[in-house]
Amino acid sequence: MKSPAFVVLLAAVAAIPLAALRAQDSAGGTTNVSISAEGEAVYRQICQACHMADARGGSGAGTGIPALADNPRLADKAYAIDILVNGSGGMPWFTDMLTPQQIAAVLNHVRGHFNAYPDPVTVAEVEQAIAAAGGDS
């Protein structure tokens, strides 16, 4: 990702989802946490909370948190995009936390660095998936 975005942090506002404000206990402040535009950094700042720094996931009361490294299901980039746009099981969608650019960047990092899938995910493909899910891209 050799672009100005490599060094410029997007001031993505990590607002608490409105739905959460309706009833759930929540912090009283609205935080203003920057998320990088660069795939490796997005992985570190967001994804590794659950999937771990080495993308190996971990065990839990059920089958645990899935590994992203060496994951054959991620060969299908449409599948990978769908997970981030729509969520899957315990994992929420990330369209309200990450921009389409950040989603494409982090998917390319996960599919290229922790796996060896050569076909890049484009921002347009992410935007199409978001539109198909009924959201704003």
Binding site: A14, I16, S26, A49, C50
Partner: peptide, 12 residues
Amino acid sequence: FANGAGALQLTG
């Protein structure tokens, strides 16, 4: 008491 992206950054 972190939420959203702040919570994920700290969790990681």
